[in-house]
Design a protein around this nucleic acid. Structure first.
Lengths: 224, 224
DNA sequence: GTGGAAATCTTTTCATTGTCAAGATAGGCC
DNA sequence: GGCCTATCTTGACAATGAAAAGATTTCCAC
């Protein structure tokens, strides 16, 4: 795999390391990830990555950042195929979320399930928040009120995100048995059914939920 | 921490390793977990754990098994405080799930987010399935039909599990902002509100969900 | 009891990894 | 052309997981 290199300088090492890094991640999982293995695949010395990413955490964070960008792209790609109905569009975002998590499970696990990622990387934070804003926008278009100013709308965001995120997490962990075998129509049907109560524009069933007693606002959820 | 030991044999090394292992996991997270560090804390040689757990994966799997047992215990503990109403009991299970994930986040992350755990360990499988059965029983008592024989009931199980699991996963990853600051009443209120549509005994809102066209049954979801 | 046999734990060794420091090479800028 | 800096390599070190071989204790048939 390590292509011959005549020049001393690689030319585009940073990008090559990212590509190889994702490959290693997919092959071995986050736990088996090795910086030296990445360097080996690219055909450079084992210390070369340090000059571009600092340490292992740096490369992993860069990969996670790329993952969040792809997550946003996947949600938007699904939305592009949806109609103008706000419910359909929110559903489409959810399906895009599933698409992304499914197509690169190891990367997804890294993004949300690795403590090495909890680093103050501005690029990472920005990418994560962008994806989160997409979800908030979807809910706002559905309810007509911004989740950032309305507590109940934000609760809706949290519920929808939790449902979709939990589903793909369990799916990728192999805990979803036959449901995981669903593709296309059936998966969409499952989601439409499960998300349906959250997709209503009118007040959801909150009859038993007492309103918050104190004035503390529910801060926006969001990555990092 | 490593207490002096006069005898050559430890006496209860296996249990001691499990205790120390959980401590290390909590201190360093799954990524930083080290077998040698565990041995060091117990005060034995670095090769001692191998005779009880084989390799790192073996110890981690044993820890995950213990985690699943505690998960089931936490769900039951909450149920013990609930009334006879089937909705309240299912809600209580969910709150117990959150309790467990919250009280030991690193262990929870290990259980569901580490590829080293996907091992054919019969104890692990059994413990995971026991917790899953608890959830299925709750849903069965609510709907009057077993999820293992009814596809729509199983879909309800998958949705409820996804919602709760996604919530605690995002919560532990720090993505839940202010919602994570909720304790007691407010958290319960949020869950009651989000789960409410899934807690109805009558058919959930599935109007837009076409029934499965083929005869393939939705296999029961479940760990491993 | 007693003498092996098995279980438990230690010591030693080796390959691998992440990180750091120092040196080699290339491109850019004056 | 000559220096300067970014880029990459080489070498070294400590830590880790795992395996092999040795030491110590317990167990158990007799």
């Amino acid at each position: 795999m390590a292509k011959q290199r005549s020049t001393y300088h690689h030319g585009d090492l940073r990008a090559a390391l990212l590509r190889a890094g994702e490959q290693v991640l997919a092959d071995t999982g986050p736990a088996g990830f090795s910086l030296r293995e990445v360097a080996r695949r690219v055909g450079v010395s084992h210390a070369a990555p340090a000059h571009h990413f600092g340490d292992t955490q740096g490369l992993l964070s860069a990969l996670a950042t790329e993952g969040f960008r792809r997550l946003l792209a996947a949600m938007r790609a699904r939305q592009a195929t949806a109609g103008p109905d706000a419910r359909d569009r929110l559903l489409a975002s959810g399906l895009g979320y599933v698409d992304c998590a499914r197509s690169s499970p190891a990367l997804f696990r890294l993004m949300f399930g690795d403590e090495r990622i909890a680093t103050p990387d501005p690029n990472l934070s920005e990418a994560g928040e962008a994806a989160f804003r997409q979800l908030c926008d979807d809910v706002e278009k559905l309810l007509g009120v911004s989740p950032f100013s309305d507590e109940r709308a934000m609760a809706r965001v949290a519920a929808a995100w939790s449902l979709v995120h939990g589903f793909v997490t369990l799916l990728n962990a192999g805990h979803m048995g036959g449901v995981g075998a669903l593709t296309g129509d059936r998966e969409e049907a499952f989601f439409r059914s499960a998300l349906a109560p959250l997709l209503e524009a009118d007040a959801p069933a909150e009859r038993k939920a007492p309103q918050a007693r104190d004035g503390r606002r529910r801060r926006p959820a969001g990555p990092s």
